[in-house]
Design a protein around this nucleic acid. Sequence first.
DNA 1: AAGTGGTCTAGACCACTTG
DNA 2: AAGTGGTCTAGACCACTTC
Lengths: 250, 250
Amino acid sequence: MSAPGERRLTLRAAQPLYLRIRDQLVADLNGGLFATGSKLPSERELAERFTCTRVTLRQALQLLETDGLIYRENRLGWYVSPPRIRYDPRGITGFMDYVAAQGRVPVTECLHAERRPAGAWMATRMGLDHPEESVFHLQRRRWVDGRPVLVEYNTLATRWCPQLLEEDLNTSLTTLLRERFGLIHSRCELIMHPGIMEQAQADLLQVSPGSSSFYLERLNFGERGQPVELDQEFWRPDALAVVLDAHYPG
Amino acid sequence: MSAPGERRLTLRAAQPLYLRIRDQLVADLNGGLFATGSKLPSERELAERFTCTRVTLRQALQLLETDGLIYRENRLGWYVSPPRIRYDPRGITGFMDYVAAQGRVPVTECLHAERRPAGAWMATRMGLDHPEESVFHLQRRRWVDGRPVLVEYNTLATRWCPQLLEEDLNTSLTTLLRERFGLIHSRCELIMHPGIMEQAQADLLQVSPGSSSFYLERLNFGERGQPVELDQEFWRPDALAVVLDAHYPG
DNA sequence: AAGTGGTCTAGACCACTTG
DNA sequence: AAGTGGTCTAGACCACTTC
């Protein structure tokens, strides 16, 4: 690999076609030509407008998608992305409150809930005694303004909330744990990085197979430092901006 | 006309070709067929191996790229990604220490440093009195194991560190501010989300135009709550996993 | 000079959604 | 039935890197 700083700049060639198309589309979007949430014209129509093939046009659209300006509804077409939800991943305030506070309409939908053995990976991650130890496992989907934006898996050690499955799970888990089981979170460990959707998540969010995603994992600890809950969230990457206000010790 | 019971074999559509190619490549990568950091065979060679066109092959490669398993060096080819750097965006520990602690080799390279007017956007962001107020502006590039992984812009209010430009800027700013100017950070505000590279950053990181990126913005506040420094980081998205250990108040 | 990745064309067929 | 997005082919030319 070359040493830092010694690369010579070459004269820049003309912009490739797909970048020029992107720039034009960005200008159209910023100019309000397409309203938030509205559907773009069909690919064939856009390709004709830019006198290019669909392949090139799609290359431009994929750039806009990666940048979060537009998104796809699988097999339906391209839509203008609404503003990102500003989201504090520490979960101090729940998803429902957060989204509502930004003037958007949140929905939480519990798709599946069961008690099952933790398994080796999860037992290690949550510091359980045995891989066979029973945990609650929830699969939930969350919506903003009628658009599914994330799939979430919650895994909870059963000992801290034995009657969990009898509760209403279409709401904030943090609130539920606090009010019904007296569980207060003391700290959490977060991991997040970009990635792609698994088939299961792509189907649930109605995105194309192999779409990119933003992965967010949160391990919550209880008052005595015991691991209580593991959240694994797969977001549509255009839907969120992670925000955090961190106070330093001392 | 359709006779009863004529085609019932398609329970599910077969996987698209580019997904099957991806799966095969993932298996090859996991099987250690290609070492970390090594170069993949040429696109034409891979396309021949999978009996498909380069277009389809590149579709599969782009999935692996989005998932962070491989990356591109512009015009040079595809390489196997090393493990992600685990990175605490609060900057309590500097980049240099963080990377080194993970057994990797960090380099910080200051590309540009100047004093200049803040400008309207920056003045607002940093709570300055006037857009013409002078700030220090640094452009730096950071490397891990000889690979450029991020471009960073630092903007600092000059009043807290008037002699900054006389210092060695190829190191940790946090450490520099503390040791030379007695500046202790009290808190920071973080924003991060996926996006794409601007041309300038793509050139500096030697990635293809329009590559995806991970954007991380950190506004640092001093002891008296005054905004001191704004960091804007553009990461190669396969290079990092953001990690955070958050303690709740109370 | 040969080979590579980056870009682009001009088609095609299919499964699916919409009317 | 028509139109759409998703997928795929079989070429091509260029700028760039490598030899």
